[in-house]
């Protein structure tokens, strides 16, 4: 079965519901983009699908044994921490294969000695390239320069072609055309 995730009439939130009922499915090898205005509950939906937020109603099916990787907005707190890029990837089990050369050269360096953009891409990569069948990304294009965004588009497709199902939240007009389907979330009011 190619469907790794099926949501039907799902309503999610934290203390109270923040989304309208939403239905969608996610298949192996595809990239689904969650779009919509601020406050529509895109990040909350992602969090709820990953087991963090609360599901108020509806049903959620996740294929048995499908491993999940979640990238949230914001960087891991690495300031002052003696942790190299290679060690960050090892933590999540992510492969360094496919990293852009300008980032692969930074792997032996401490993360807090890298630029904000390099750190952002490496932390995104540590989730994107980790061993998981379902990959959820929240605004993956944030803080990336043109080269980073261009590489990300190819990396997302390569990951999907390798069998992963990718669900991403994005407002990035350069990234959205590279997704297979779009799901627009409307705010409750």
């Amino acid at each position: 079965m190619n469907k790794l995730l099926v949501a039907e009439q799902l309503v999610v939130g934290w203390d109270a519901p923040v989304t309208r009922p939403v239905s969608f499915h996610l298949e192996r090898g595809e990239i689904l983009a969650l779009t919509g205005p601020n406050g529509a509950g895109k990040s909350t939906l992602l969090a709820a699908l990953a087991g963090q937020g609360r599901i108020f109603s509806g049903t959620l099916f996740r294929a048995a044994g499908a491993r999940l990787a979640l990238q949230t907005q914001g960087l891991p707190p690495v300031a002052g921490l003696p942790l190299s890029g290679a060690e960050l990837l090892a933590l999540t089990g992510a492969s360094a294969q496919g990293l852009p050369p300008w980032l692969a050269a930074c792997l032996p360096l401490r993360l807090d000695r890298l630029s904000g953009g390099q750190r952002q891409y490496l932390s995104l990569w540590s989730v994107l390239a980790s061993p998981a069948e379902l990959v959820f990304l929240d605004e993956p294009g944030n803080n990336l320069d043109r080269a980073g965004r261009a590489h990300l588009q190819g990396a997302l497709r390569a990951r999907a072609n390798a069998g992963a199902a990718i669900l991403l939240v994005s407002h990035d007009p350069e990234l959205l055309p590279h997704c297979d389907r779009h799901l627009m979330l409307e705010p409750i009011s």
Binding site: A50, A69, L91
Partner: peptide, 10 residues
């Protein structure tokens, strides 16, 4: 510390 969401997601 770095990816608190990792365990919940798994």
């Amino acid at each position: 510390e770095l990816y608190p969401a990792h365990f919940l997601a798994r």
